[in-house]
Amino acid sequence: MKRILFIALVLSSSFGYAQQTVKRSSDINGIVFEKFTVLKTDKKIRQGEYTATFHGNVIAHGNYTNGQRSGEWTFYAPRGKKPIQIFNYDQNKFTLLDSADMRGPSYIIETTNPADIISAPVKIGGSSGIFALTTSRTELRGLTRGELPGAIKLILKHTLVISQTGQIVDHIVEVTGDNHMTKTLHLNDATFDPEITRFIPAMVNSQPVMSKVVIVTQSVTTGVITKTY
């Protein structure tokens, strides 16, 4: 009898929780899509399960509690099914970190000495998180029609400047067209969810420091990324 009562209470609690939220979805940048739930009483506050997909593949899954990421979140490579990261937001630490996923970008930490113990900045969300910040940006669409007329292919060098607190303080893009014309832009990442732009900062001798993350991509006139270096 006690067991039946316990199950009934759990089901009742779950039903009540579902009644307090509504489903939502959003388009981060044209290729990364989010599905989540928000409170009925305040639709700006996320509450409950969250999933992000890249070309239909799940790249992030976790939960929100009162608008904050909570518990363990699992992140996947853009075209892989194996987890590359598991980050516990309650404990603010990784329980799984695949170092191989960090090999794509280049990392720059200035003014270091040979004896220093250095660790590179780590994007929470791995390579998928960096792709969300650098691919299909609306600010870069139309470059071939405007600032770089006549170009068919573009090489885009993204430099993310990461603060000691792990936030992006500048996003510089150096664009070179196959017509030999160039353009430098500063993108605004403030419109993203702060957790999408968050890094674990670079460390030198266990102290957080400023750093840069550099990723180079190749694009065509439609804005589709055709290659990542």
Rank of each mutant, 00 (worst) to 15 (best):
F15E: 04
V173M: 03
S127K: 11
F199Q: 08
V58L: 00
T51L: 08
G62S: 09
G177N: 11
E174S: 11
K212G: 01
T41P: 00
Q167C: 02
L160I: 08
V10H: 01
Q91Y: 04
S12I: 10
T217E: 14
R3M: 07
F75Y: 15
S12Y: 02
Y17V: 13
K2S: 07
V122S: 03
G223M: 02
R46Q: 11
P194F: 01
I225S: 06
V10P: 00
Q218A: 09
I7W: 09
I117L: 08
F199R: 07
P78L: 06
T41E: 14
K153L: 12
D178R: 04
D98W: 01
I84W: 00
T159G: 02
Y107H: 04
R103I: 13
S219M: 12
L156E: 15
L185W: 05
S12E: 00
T197M: 02
I4F: 07
V214P: 00
K212A: 03
T176N: 08
P83T: 10
L11R: 02
V173R: 03
F75H: 11
G223R: 04
R141A: 06
L133H: 05
A120Y: 07
L11N: 05
I59M: 05
V220R: 07
I118T: 07
L187P: 08
P114F: 09
G177W: 09
N63S: 11
A120W: 03
Y50S: 13
S136N: 14
G48K: 07
I124N: 03
G16K: 02
T53M: 03
P201H: 06
S14Q: 10
L5R: 12
I130V: 15
R79A: 11
Y64E: 07
G62F: 07
L148V: 12
L96C: 04
L133R: 06
I7Y: 07
P83M: 03
M102I: 05
F6Y: 13
Y17R: 08
L140N: 04
A8S: 10
R46A: 10
D98P: 01
T41I: 10
Y89V: 13
A202Y: 03
V10S: 02
R69W: 01
I117W: 01
N57T: 15
G223Y: 02
S12H: 01
S211R: 04
T111H: 13
P201G: 09
Y89A: 09
S25E: 14
K157W: 00
W73G: 08
S119Q: 14
D170V: 01
I130N: 04
Y89C: 09
L133T: 09
